[in-house]
Nucleic acid binder design. Sequence first.
DNA 1: ATAGGGGTAACT
DNA 2: AGTTACCCCTAT
Length: 517
Amino acid sequence: MADRQHVLVRHLISRPNPIEPQSVPQRHPLNGTPQLAKPHNPGLARILLDTDASNPGERPAKRRRSGDAKSLDLPKLPVRQGTKRLRIPPTLSGLHQPPPNAGLLPSMTTEQRVPIAEKAAAKLPSTPVEDTSAACNVSDVVEGASIVQEPVKTNKLKRNRWSDEETVCLLNGVARFTIGSWTKILNCSDYRFNGRTALDLKDRFRVCCPGDYHPTKVSRPDAHAAVRADDELATDRDDAASRSGSTIPKPRIELPEPVINQTFEKNKRRKRHGYSAKEDEAILKGFRKHGKAWAAMRADGDLCLEHRTATDLRDRMRTKYPEEYSKAGLASRPDIFPKPSKRGKDTDNHEAEIPTAELAAAEASNTIGIIAEKEGQAAQKQMSASLMHQTPLLPLDSVFWGAPFDEEDLDCEPVTLDRGILDWPGDSGKQSSFDNARASGIDPLVSLRLPEPTAAPISYSTSYGLPGSVLPSVASITAVPPSGMDDQFELPSLMIGALEMDGRAGGHFLGFDELLS
DNA sequence: ATAGGGGTAACT
DNA sequence: AGTTACCCCTAT
């Protein structure tokens, strides 16, 4: 019977997704997430895989929180304009648990960490990026995650020279995202850097293209044309420089013409202008006069604030006069909000911290979700991009990618828990995972922001439903069986009723009450 | 148009 | 490294 079921399922998953587009998207049985209306849209893979820089104006999705700044700069899913983000349930994996393909990964132990780095340094002395154009395969990702994000710096004074590949990435990134968009370039999955920071990118660009980077200079409206003209004239860049009267040094690098001859557009960010005491006074006066009508304040000729935008005025008021601002019933900007963590700087924020090796494992893993992150968007994008570069176990069309979702969902972000997430190393199974964890000084309930177990202890286990289910990782919360059966157990299928031969569900999804009964 | 909640490049 | 002016995005 089990064999027959297995064969049936294998048959089903090897076929195109039979679920027809529906006017009312089917909902995920657990988190209510609607599925894509066209899960087997043939253009999906192309769109998701599209790393073409043909849309230089695209704006990457904003990072919602700063927690991911300390995360790996993992490949991110390109975001299409005008579309909502794809939702993929983040999945937690036990920190002690190796991913399915852990053999691809370096050891997670600290003892071996340094030797690995040294080995990497020996292997890749100056060209850590082997192939900047090819899509990353799994091992690339793993290597990139473990090496690129851990700058090989056994000695702080050791210079980390820029490789040509990195420089090519940088210049292509600048051409794509404009000068100054260093973080975007750094975080773009199309480019790989050897443990660089955004400031490193800026510094390198300043060295490579000294004629293009003038942070304090008013942005040239004809910067594009000027650069082009330079390039056209510049059979010898020194000549061009001397003609323009500049002392711009010649770049010390030799790069392919298509790269070095790209035009680099300045980003549109305005120059910073500090607020004078007079302006502050006018803003305060304007606030008392116009209240939160910032546009009116700006238009008030008596205040001489026309050179600031309405938002500028609000921001300044919010910054300079927080008390007055809040007294007017407006919400002051929180005094303390998560600062972007500094690269390589350890923090006390263990809540969102995930070991590098674990993230590398997550990258390499072929499961849908690994990374646990309360602000799961970045992780989702990273995971998605990672998946795009890998040979999926299932055809893309068969994978539940989630669907566009609303921001409000973020507050109750469903987290998919991987198998045995709360087990602890050495857990004999006789003691609660929670107890073990707490005995080690770590409370998984706190870190996962889960409620205290009340009367009935809660165990988190994973049900994959049928083997090879099209839902790769469905988490459930189930009551632990009372009589010492604290080992995890597989849930019954979430579906009641048999599948139709065309793969459609003939039954109905179990509700939570039914699941728990 | 504005509020709210940030992210981040530029500045110090 | 810390601060903040500018910026962005979504919701209302």
